[in-house]
Structure formats: C-alpha cells, structure tokens
C-alpha cells in the first residue's frame, strides 16, 4: 500500500536561537495536521513531531542536522511543508524566545 511509504531527508536548524519553545510549537502544530507518522531524529534521540515535549528533548542548536522521517500518505509533501519551516527560520524574530 502507498500508505506504507517512508520518506527520509535531512533538515538543518538555521535560526540563531535553535529549536526552542516556539519553533517546536510550530512544528507540532504543522505535524498534527497530518494523519501519518512524523519523527525527527538526532543521534539516538527520536522525537514524535506531533509532541511538543518530545521535540524539546532534541535540544537542537543552530547548525544541527536532524533526520526527518515521514510515514503515511503523501510523505514527500509533508516533508516539504516541515522543511519550509526550517528553511525560513520559523519566521522568528531573534527575541523574545
């Protein structure tokens, strides 16, 4: 079934403050719109992208590469949308965090 397709890619944290609270909120809100599974990996740490608490455990600073793994319907499109958040630096002003 096409539902079983897994899409993997690497995304890089480019914003100066890293994956702090608000970027993680934005990621979780975006991921929750998809019916499939979305996971970010940093080394041995795996975080469900739909969970703010799990995303915060990545402690990803500026320059960190994360492996994005999307399973479910239309995974490439899902990965594209999440990658856009990273590539635009979450459209975050530097302060407040």
């Amino acid at each position: 079934m096409s539902d079983a397709v897994i899409h993997r890619r690497t995304v890089t944290v480019i914003n100066e403050q890293g994956l702090h609270f608000r970027p993680c909120q934005l990621i979780a809100q975006a991921a929750q719109q998809f019916s499939g599974t979305v996971v970010f990996c940093r080394g041995s740490t795996r975080a469900d992208a739909k969970s703010l608490l799990e995303l915060l455990t990545l402690a990803a600073e500026q320059g960190t590469d994360l492996e994005l793994e999307v399973t479910g319907p239309d995974p490439t499109n899902v990965a594209d949308k999440l990658s856009e958040l990273f590539s635009c630096g979450f459209q975050m002003p530097p302060q407040p965090a």
């Binding site: 890293g18 915060l56 455990t57 990545l58 990803a60 302060q95």
Partner: peptide, 20 residues
C-alpha cells in the same frame, strides 16, 4: 542569558525529558 541559547535549549530539554 540572551547570549547563551544553548543553555536555554538544554534547560528545556532537561525539563521536558523528565516531564515525559
């Protein structure tokens, strides 16, 4: 402190890990 974003992230990581 504003100039140490890494410490802020590690603090959030620590708290989040335990709250899970």
């Amino acid at each position: 402190p504003p100039d140490r974003p890494g410490d802020h992230l590690r603090g959030l990581e620590n708290i989040s890990r335990h709250l899970r």
